[in-house]
Simulated assay, not measured.
Amino acid sequence: MRLARYRIGTGPERLGRVDGERITDVTDVAGASLRALLPRLEELTPALLAAEGDEHSLAAVTLLAPIDDPQKFLGIGMNYKEHAEEARQAGIPTPTSQLWFNKQVSCIAGPFDAIERPRVSEELDYEIELGVVIGTRCRHVRAEDARSVIAGYLVVNDVSVRDWLQKRSPTFTLGKSFDTHGPIGPWLTTDDEIADPLDLGMCLSVNGEVRQNWRTDDMIYDIYEQIAYLTQVMTLEPGDILATGTPAGIAAPTRNWLRPGDVVRAEIDELGAIENRVVDEV
């Protein structure tokens, strides 16, 4: 099942079930908050699948960030083999264990919202990532049990401001957290829809030119190891988003930074695509 937050015109936020190029309203069944729905997702799935609310074409609605209010938005750095090497060549040391950072939740943007190039930097980079959404409150999860706490998946562009990321702050948090630098979507695809999240193709293009083209099976630490590692430290809550690493092809090694007017499209097999135009911060 694919679940999306949307609105029509300037109307209220709604929750819908996406089937092909149509979206069926399920707000009366589940409310308008996807994060609030997740703890009851299994219980409400039959009603969500059977719902016959108002139906619209996707082209007639504005898709919103599937979850705009997670308690945590976490990312792992240099988690694909060739990306770790290109990062090393750009002067970023290769970590010897999982390297996690916060993306402040205020950076979240919708799947087709604009990405702002900050006033304070021109080193704007892209990173396509498989986003994992937690569905069950959990702590001390074993890797072999980790899939049971996943609600589903979405596409993430972990937009990065490189000079703030590597030079102006001793942690990754600031360079990863500028407003609009967390576009996600286009919807949540529930875990039962995906046979193997570790075997998905992912592709990012800028103005139609492919920059990243990889598969999720190249992760150094797979998504289950990531959940096991994190839950040794903290409780993960329904709606928490994990950005699970980006493959090779980022702009940093060539300094081919994103510029205003660029259109960045990030697509993952079976999950859909997000597309964001770069604009200057006003």
Rank of each mutant, 00 (worst) to 15 (best):
D69N: 12
T62L: 05
F73Q: 03
K103P: 10
H83M: 07
T96L: 14
M78N: 11
R88W: 06
E82Y: 13
T94D: 06
S97K: 13
K81T: 12
C107A: 14
T62V: 02
Q104V: 15
D69G: 06
F112V: 05
L63R: 00
P66F: 03
G91P: 05
F73E: 02
C107W: 02
A84T: 05
E85L: 14
G77K: 00
D69P: 07
G110L: 07
S97H: 13
F73P: 01
P70I: 11
S97F: 13
I92V: 13
Q71P: 12
P95K: 03
W100E: 01
L74D: 02
A90D: 10
A90K: 07
F101T: 06
N79W: 00
A90P: 06
L74E: 01
L74A: 04
F101E: 07
G75A: 05
K72L: 13
P70L: 10
I92E: 04
F112D: 10
S106E: 14
K72D: 09
F112S: 11
Y80Q: 01
I67P: 03
G110A: 09
P66Q: 04
G75S: 03
A90G: 12
Q104A: 15
R88F: 10
A84E: 03
K81W: 08
Y80N: 00
I92P: 00
E82M: 13
G77Y: 01
W100P: 00
A90W: 06
V61P: 01
D69M: 08
F101H: 09
S106K: 15
P111F: 03
G77F: 01
R88N: 09
G91A: 07
N102G: 08
N102P: 07
L74P: 00
K72E: 11
D113T: 10
P93V: 08
C107S: 12
D113C: 08
W100I: 02
Q71D: 15
K72H: 12
Q104S: 14
V61T: 03
S97R: 14
F112H: 13
A90E: 07
I92T: 08
N102F: 12
T96V: 14
L64C: 05
A84M: 07
F73H: 08
Q71A: 15
G77T: 00
F73G: 02
V105L: 14
A84L: 06
E82Q: 15
F101C: 07
Q104R: 13
I76Q: 01
P93L: 09
R88M: 10
P66H: 02
T96N: 15
P66I: 05
P111A: 05
